[in-house]
Design a protein around this nucleic acid. Sequence first.
DNA 1: AGTGGCTCCTGGCGGC
DNA 2: TGCCGCCAGGAGCCAC
Length: 288
Amino acid sequence: MRRCLHPRVAGRTVTRVQVLDSTVSRQSQAELCESLTGRRVRGTRRRGKWLVLDLGEMLLIVHLRMTGRLIWEPDEEEQGRRPRFVIDFDDGERLHFFDVRRFGRLWAVPATEEEEFFADIGAEPLEEEFTVERLLAGMAGRTAPLKSFLTDQRRLAGVGNIYADEALFRARLHPLRPAGSVGPREAERLHRAVVETLQLGIDHEGSSVESFVDPAGSRGRFQEILNVYQRTGQPCRVCGTPIRRIVVGGRATHYCPHCQPRRSMMVRTSPAAGRGGARGTPPHRAGT
DNA sequence: AGTGGCTCCTGGCGGC
DNA sequence: TGCCGCCAGGAGCCAC
């Protein structure tokens, strides 16, 4: 999202701000206008699931939640719908914030308060700060299921329901395993899996399971290579076992009961033990 | 510390 | 066709 947005907003100056749905922000239209109008976009950043437009002394921080979309040219799907928020730029471009379920939020934040704004957000998985050691230390002593641990934004930034399920599959870890029960070797697998899964998502421009669309209007392709998410009953791409769906922490959770055993898989020396097919890194687009 | 339940919303879909 | 319940990418809040 950020990568697509950047070239279209960088260097542009905000000329007009319209709040068409007052619940989009705790701040009023007047406050947002005052904070944003006349400022030039210096850059864009992402922190977890938050998108940050750097306007110099002020930041525009956006969270799309479930159905938020940033759109330049509304297509038929948006026709007739009202955007919740619109920004005009000095080159005549207009950015619309559409959001069917209206869960998305945005904030105008003084640049000096950025750190405070993100104070409760955990490590950034694609940054150097996210290490196996830090992950292991974070999980130590926790009884929360891995699934809940991964999607807790205070512990890790940016891992949502899809990416948590996919990362656990890649790491061959059962979503209900208590985080604290994960050993060093497993933590290494989990660390790698989280990084690879998020990177894969970015490489494929997101997961448009339903309506995520980048600012130019194209859909992401990550959903095409999902291994477990929303594949309930379909054969595991590695071993053929039907993918199972359970609810963890109120969230739909998908996993392969064979590749992600409840108990940690013991390292076996006997060649007869275990099934080779479930070993190794699961292919990210097996079956194609 | 962790969980479950509820809330904020709308719309798509399957079942009857 | 119409109605109903269930489900959905997130996360904050509260009671327990």
